[in-house]
Simulated assay, not measured.
Amino acid sequence: MTAIALKSTLWSLSIKPFKRKGGTNLLLNASDLALGLRGIGWNWSQVHLAPETRPTSSKTTFVLWTLASLCLHIPVFDALHYAVQSFGPTTFGTINGGSIFDDTLSPLLRYSRSTFISFLSGLVIYCAIRITYDVATVFGIVVLRQHPTQWPPIFNSPWRATSLSQFWSKRWHQLFRDFFVGVGGVPMTYMFGRIGGVLGTFFISGLLHDVGLWGMGKGSDAVCMIGFFIMMGFGVILEGFWRKVTGHRVDGWIGWIWMCTWLLGWLNLLVNAWAAKGLIGSLFIPDAQRLPVKIFGPLS
């Protein structure tokens, strides 16, 4: 609902009609306009799409490849989720929630531990999005009779990013990019230039994530949720300064180390907010069907 509200805001400001490239089914077009986040096949979309690696000439083959992806990512997701929960089986591993920071440890061990938890949590989020998208892909092709080209990859190997700018603009999923930029980035660019545009874009991203956290019914944590994305914006701005001063983009293995350090360091804020509200303790797969539980036993 939040996404539709943000998209509706952009629609009200559009100076040209929205047109779809091919297809005349009014019901499907209306549904795709309202629910489709990347605007694939529409003249308004400016989202970067990852290159396709699956065969698109045959729907059957494409669906089989997607089902294979599901068979891979579901157990990996469950194993990673179990691993994260195992660090706090009686605290943030439950729906009661808790902090990922262990005050009984020295600062070095405390933040090393929390950063590792955050890293694993990032992998969990990656797998969860892949699973959701794969399910939607199969539904779109089998039930709605859509073409495989309407379901390009949602990620572009984010672990290969060599800068924060590349990570957020091309390699992480681009589901909300249009209205993040349109609602937050464009107005702030007019008022404060590029710096305002970058921070405005990431502010709307943080706001959307905070609304999702608030939707769990345990309040919000705007400082951590919005703060994480604002710091991502500052990181992108720093990369712009670097390019302006040196004449070179942030890139290569040094850029990769920089990206990982900045991203994982501030990710502690985001993951701790999720942990405190009980999100990490959510039950996605019943314990009776969880392979890690059968192998290592229940967490509590």
Rank of each mutant, 00 (worst) to 15 (best):
A3Y: 14
L10S: 07
T24A: 09
N25T: 00
N29A: 00
A30M: 11
S31C: 06
D32T: 09
L33K: 11
A34G: 02
A34C: 13
G36L: 08
V47H: 08
V47R: 05
L49S: 08
P51V: 00
R54L: 13
S57K: 00
S58V: 10
K59I: 15
K59N: 12
L64D: 05
T66L: 03
S69H: 09
S69C: 11
L70A: 05
D78G: 05
A79M: 10
A79V: 07
L80P: 02
L80C: 00
Q85F: 01
F87N: 05
F87C: 02
T90G: 09
F92V: 01
I100C: 01
P107W: 14
Y111M: 02
R113Q: 14
S118Y: 06
V124I: 15
I125S: 14
I129S: 03
R130C: 08
V135R: 05
T137E: 11
V142M: 13
F155I: 10
N156D: 13
S165H: 14
S165C: 04
Q166T: 03
S169P: 06
S169C: 12
H173M: 08
H173G: 06
L175Q: 12
F180R: 08
V183I: 15
G184W: 01
V186H: 09
G196T: 08
G200P: 07
I204D: 10
V211L: 14
L213E: 00
G227I: 04
F228L: 10
G233P: 12
G235K: 15
E239S: 02
G240C: 03
I254C: 06
M259G: 02
W262S: 01
W262Q: 12
L263T: 15
G265V: 02
N268V: 11
A275Q: 00
A275K: 01
L279R: 01
F284G: 08
F296I: 14
P298N: 07
